[in-house]
Design a protein around this nucleic acid. Structure first.
Lengths: 325, 325
DNA sequence: TTGTATGCGTTATCAG
DNA sequence: CTGATAACGCATACAA
C-alpha cells in the first residue's frame, strides 16, 4: 500500500503538502493540487486511518455489543445501527456476547484497546458497577444503569398492558406470559409486571413462566410451553415476550391441535419482519426498532461531542393486530 | 486513557521495559515485572491497539460485507463468522451493502483505509475486475470470480436437484421456481439451472419467476407468487430459493385457501432457524452455514499467512423434509 | 504558497 | 537485565 510519502515523492513535494490537499487545509496552488490529486489516483493512494486515528485521538469506530446477531431482533437492530453509523462516518465493530458475562467484559476491554469512540450495549449480564469503569461514551438498550448512563427503550409496561388487555378483551379466561430470565435486570421485565398487574386488576387467572438460563433456545421454549399446556389444559391466551417465542407457541398449539385464535390466542413482542411473514401472522407489540436505533446513535454522538444528553429515552409501542388473536 | 508512558513513569522504568513485560520479550527481573504489572493494574492500562497495529502493519480487523444483517441468513452467517474471527483474535467490521454497487465499492475502500487484514464478501453486485483491485486477502461466498479469488459455497446444483426431485416424487405435476434476480452472477443461480434441467428431464411442466431488482422485499415476493397462481391455477409445487420466500409462498397459499402440502407442496432453501420454527415447518435444502463460515475464515487466515489455498470450496447440502411437502 | 520539525503510542534494534 | 532511539503513517505548529 502506498503511503503519503510515496505520493509526495512522486509528485515532487513534501508530505505536508500532500496532507494539505488531502484535508483541504491552508493555501495550495491549483497546480500542485492537481498534480497531487493525479498522483494519488495513479498510485491508488488511500490514507491510513490507523495513523490518522492515532494522531487525532479519534477512531471513528463504534462498538456494538449484542447477544447475537443471529437473533432477528438484534439482526434488525444491528442493520439500522450500522446504517445510521455509516451515514455519520462511523464504523461498527460487531460483538456477539452470547449473553455471557465474561464475554461482555472481554469485549468491552477489547473495544477500549481499539480506541472506539463509543459503545452501544444491548446485552446486559454484567453488574452495574462494571459500567462505571467503562469511562467512554456509552448508550444502553433496555437497561437502566444506576449512574447517569443514558438508555433507549420502548415503553415496556405499556406494551405488556396492551398485550394483556387485548387477550382479555378477546375473551381469554386463563392466560400465561412466557419470557426470558427475569433475573437479568432488564426494562423488558416491565412487560411481565404489566401482565401480572393487568390480569389481577381484571380478575383473570394467569401464570408466568420463564427460562432458567439466558438463552434464545427454541427447544427450551417449546418444552416450556408444552409443560404449560399439560399443567393448564384450559389455557386460552398467551403473551409471549418475543415474536420468536410466539412462533414456538404457535407450533406447539398446532401439535396439540389447538386452533388459533379460536381456542388459544397469542400475542408476540417486537414486530420483527417475520411476525407478519409467518402463517398465521402474529399479533404483536411493535417496538420502533428503527427509531430506537437512530436515537441511540444520536445520543452516542452527542456524548462524543460533549453535549448534554437525556438519560431516559423511552419510545412508544403500538399494538399490531393480526391473525393470532 | 493512560499510555505506556504513564505506566513507565509511575513504575520508575522506561517505556521499553513496560513494552517488554507487556509482550513477554527478552529478559526482565521478576521484581520489575511484578512492579510493572501492579502499576498497569492500578492505572487500568490498556495498550492502544491503533498504535500497535500501525507499527506492526497488521490490524487484526476483518471486513465483512453482506447485503444486510437483518436478513436471517446473513444474520446467522455473521454470527458464526464473528465467533470464528473472535476465537482467532480478529475483530469484525460490519458492512451492509444493501446490494448496492456503490456501497460495496465504498465499503471496500473504507476497509482498505482502515487497514483490515482481509475481507469476506457475501454481497456481489460489483464487476469482476473490481475484485482484482482489492489487493488484499479476500474470500467470497457464493461467487466465482475469474481471477484466483477463493470462494466458499455449498452445492447449489445438487440443492436444486434435490428440491425439484422431491416435489416431483411427491406427485407434483406443475412446479415453479421463485428466486432473486438471476442477472447477478451468483453460484446460487445453479439452483435454477438444476430446477429447469430436472423438470425437463422428468417431463414436468415448470415455470421460473424472479424479482426484477436486487432486494429482499417480502411484498415483492408476495406479489410475484400471487401473480404466479393467477396465471397458473393448477400449480402444485414451489421451489423457493430461500426459506423467507418459502414463508411468503405459504402465506399466499393460506390466503388462497390452498392446503399445504395436499394441494401445494413447498420446498425452501438455507434452513435458517425459523424454517423449523414456523408453522407449518418448512421442508428445505440445508446449507451448512456453520461449516461454510468456518471454512471461509480458515481460507482468509491462510491467505494472511501467505499459505496456499484452494480456490473452489463447495460443501454438501442436505434435504430436510418437514411439513410443507 | 510550501517545507521542517515534532508527536500520536507502540515496538524493535542496538547499546550499555 | 535495562535504556535511548528510530520508525510505523499522518497532521499540525511554526518557519521560510
Amino acid at each position: 500500500m502506498p503511503t503519503i510519502k510515496d505520493v509526495a515523492e512522486k509528485a515532487g513535494v513534501t508530505v505536508t503538502t500532500v496532507s494539505r490537499v488531502l484535508n483541504n487545509r491552508g493555501y495550495i496552488s491549483e497546480a500542485t493540487r492537481k498534480k497531487v490529486y493525479r498522483v494519488m489516483k495513479e498510485l491508488d493512494y488511500q490514507p491510513n486511518e490507523l495513523a490518522r486515528s492515532l494522531f487525532r485521538g479519534k477512531s471513528n469506530l463504534i462498538g456494538l455489543i449484542i447477544p447475537t446477531v443471529s437473533h432477528p431482533f438484534f439482526g434488525e437492530l444491528s442493520a439500522y445501527i450500522e446504517e445510521d453509523a455509516h451515514s455519520e462516518g462511523y464504523k461498527i465493530l460487531l460483538c456477539n456476547s452470547q449473553l455471557e458475562r465474561e464475554k461482555e467484559i472481554e469485549y468491552i476491554e477489547m473495544l477500549k484497546r481499539h480506541q472506539v469512540d463509543g459503545i452501544i450495549m444491548a446485552s446486559h449480564t454484567i453488574d452495574v458497577d462494571e459500567y462505571s469503569k467503562v469511562n467512554l461514551p456509552i448508550v444502553t438498550f433496555d437497561r437502566r444503569i444506576k449512574e447517569k448512563i443514558p438508555y433507549v427503550s420502548s415503553n415496556n409496561y405499556q406494551g405488556g398492558k396492551l398485550a394483556t388487555n387485548l387477550l382479555i378483551d378477546k375473551g381469554c379466561k386463563q392466560i400465561a406470559h412466557i419470557c426470558g430470565n427475569l433475573s437479568l435486570d432488564l426494562l423488558a421485565n416491565k412487560r411481565s409486571e404489566a401482565f401480572v398487574a393487568t390480569a389481577q386488576e381484571r380478575g383473570i387467572k394467569f401464570h408466568t413462566v420463564q427460562t432458567d438460563i439466558n438463552v434464545f433456545e427454541t427447544k427450551q421454549y417449546e418444552r416450556l410451553i408444552l409443560d404449560l399446556f399439560s399443567e393448564h389444559p384450559n389455557l386460552d391466551g398467551i403473551f409471549a415476550s418475543s415474536d420468536l417465542i410466539a412462533a414456538s407457541a404457535i407450533k406447539i398449539c398446532y401439535q396439540l391441535k389447538k386452533a388459533i385464535p379460536d381456542e388459544v390466542r397469542i400475542v408476540g413482542y417486537d414486530d420483527i419482519s417475520i411476525a407478519s411473514l409467518v402463517t398465521p401472522q402474529i399479533t404483536t407489540i411493535r417496538q420502533p426498532i428503527e427509531m430506537m436505533s437512530k436515537l441511540a446513535m444520536e445520543i452516542l454522538i452527542k456524548q462524543m461531542n460533549k453535549e448534554k444528553v437525556t438519560v431516559e429515552n423511552i419510545l412508544p409501542v403500538t399494538l399490531q393486530e393480526r391473525e393470532t388473536t
